[in-house]
Every structure is written in structure tokens, then in C-alpha cells.
Simulated assay, not measured.
Amino acid sequence: MGTAGEIGFKLTESHDVQDLEECGLLHPALDQVYQLVRRKLIDYFGDTLGQMLQSVTIRGAIGAVSNAATGIAPNAVKAVPTLLILNARPGSMMENPHQLAQELMTIAPGIVGVIIERVGGRYGRVFVGQEFLTDVVLGRRFRISADSFFQVNPIQTSVLVERAMAALEPQRHEIVLDGYSGVGLFSTFLASQCARVIAVESQPSAVMDARAGCALNNQNNITALEGTLERILNQLHYRRERIDIALVDPPRAGCHPKALQALQTMAPRAICYVSCDPSTLARDIATLCSGGRYRLVSAQPVDMFPQTYHIESVALLVRVGKWQ
């Protein structure tokens, strides 16, 4: 959202905002929400819009209403469960944010919650309705809080999961590590094919979502731990717990160097590295393969963000020999 009241996307390598009345990239139902919310905010704030709001995020659980075979809703404009997250501009003083949140709840079909962050004065944070969505991937349900990360391309998310599972080939007797596990996207599918999953995530809301997901999917062999991967791995090693295989899905910055070192020490037979940045993926693979401890077997790109240069990758590394 621009300081002059523009509502749209930021321009490449800039803080300027391109004003958009509609967005052809969005699912039709979410574009409908966007258009209605856009008009509401313009009417509500008038000339002060750019002074009051910094950003608006629309999150939709498209998988919850999609056809499993195509990923597209049978009715293109069928309402999609949606969260609206508004970030107030620092220093702004919104007179009645609760009223705005209540009005936005009814502005379009499918809106299940409205959250206004960083509201000045006595409010701080205002929300009405739910603070989370429930989405579906390959028949599994996931709770996703407003502060938790989740993939935005429902069709390719399924592909990403399938490629990771095919690469790692978990066995029924194995204990699996899911590092940077988020709301439990990979943990949920790993748990159905192995003895136990140890999921490690530092974002508190995502850990809570992962634990809620265990109940949603009736799974009792996932342990969701809150903390940094390097710290938890060191604790597991100290307790002499074993990890047979590992999957890591770090943010763009890649894995923490101490996490890579701890992974080498734990020595799982295979590591599946899911990456959203080829440069940090290459750096971390070089570290894991240093000293001849692991070797890279495969790397499969997955186009999660069509019409952009961003790419997801699923890389498989296997342990060389039986060193410890």
C-alpha cells in the first residue's frame, strides 16, 4: 500500500506501489475479495488511506474448496475461506479499528477473520472472527495461523510434497527429522510412512498449528518441538537419540551453519533439502558434502511461482559409507 493511497503490488526493487483495481494472478474468488476490500478501504479512509495503512494481506485456503484432481474450484467464484490481515502504518491513530474489522468481515463471502496489526493507542492488535485458516493438501488438513508460513500455490504444493516423499522414501521403522517444519506440511505425510517424526520449528504460532494438525489428521506419531534446529539437534545428539532420515525446508537464507554441522553429526542415511533459493541451496549442499560425508543424488526444480524467476527445489543427499 502506497503512501498516496495506492493499493496493489510493490514494484520490483522498489517501495513504490502499483495501484491495481483487479489482479489476474489471484484465484477468481480471492480477486473478488481483493476488489471489494480495496473499494471498502478507499471509501472508509478517503484521502487518509495511505497515512493509516501500510499493507493488506489476503490469505485464502484454496485447497479447502478445490477439486483434488485439478486444484481448481468446480465453480470458479465459489467462496474461499479467507483471512484479511491489515498492518497499520507506524504512528497512525485509527479511531475505531474494531468497527473497521467488523465491517470487513461482511464485505465478501468466505472471509472468516480480520486482523489489524500495530494499531496505535490503546488497541495494539484487533481481530474479529478466526485467527487461522484450515486448508487441505492431498486430503490432509492443516491449520494455518495469520503469522504462520504456508505455500501459496495449491497445485504445486502437492507436487512439492510428492517429489519430496518420492526422493526420501521413508520406511516404516524409521525416525524422521522435519527441520524448519512450519505448520507440519511435510511432517503430516512423513508420519503416515514412518515410525515417528520429530518436527522442529522456531515460530510459536506454526508449532501450535502443527500440534493442532496432528489432531485434525488423527496422527499421534509427530512430536512438534519449538526452537532453533541447531539447538534441538544438539539436544537430540546429547540424549543419544537417532535420526534415520531428515528433511529440511529452511527460509530463503538457508540452514544455519550450526544446523548443518549438527546434521552431519547425527548422520541420517539421507537428507532431503527443500529450498526456495538455488544459491543458498548450493552453498548448503557444498557444506553437507564436504569431507566426502554426503553426496548429491538428485535435484528437482518445482515451479511454485510461474512468471517469476523464483524456483523451489527438492534435492536428495545420501550418506557415504557408515561413518559416525
Score class of each variant (00 low, 15 high):
G179T: 05
Q51G: 12
T70P: 10
A212C: 13
P109D: 08
R89I: 07
T70N: 10
G254K: 00
S145Q: 09
Y44W: 12
Q54P: 00
G213T: 05
A210F: 09
N218H: 14
Q235S: 10
Q219D: 04
G113N: 09
F132I: 05
A69N: 10
T134Q: 03
D284A: 01
L216Y: 10
G124L: 06
R239E: 13
V248F: 07
F45L: 00
A215M: 07
L317E: 14
L26Q: 03
Q130K: 12
L260Y: 08
R242K: 07
D43A: 01
R295W: 10
M52A: 00
S192Y: 13
Y309T: 11
I116L: 07
L296E: 01
L296I: 09
A146T: 06
N220G: 07
R269G: 04
R59L: 14
F149S: 04
I85D: 04
A29Q: 00
D135I: 09
E230H: 05
R39V: 11
T3K: 02
V274Y: 12
E13T: 08
A286G: 06
Q151N: 11
A224Y: 03
L288H: 05
Q307T: 13
Q193D: 07
A64S: 11
V65Y: 04
M208L: 10
A206W: 04
G24P: 01
R122D: 13
H310T: 04
N96G: 03
I62Q: 04
G321E: 11
T280Y: 15
E201R: 02
L41I: 07
L288S: 03
L20D: 00
R38W: 12
Q130N: 12
P97M: 11
G213L: 11
M105K: 02
R163Q: 13
A224Q: 07
A108Q: 01
M304F: 07
P109F: 03
R252L: 13
A191G: 03
L260M: 15
A267I: 07
P301H: 05
D303F: 13
G291I: 13
F150M: 11
A259R: 09
V207C: 01
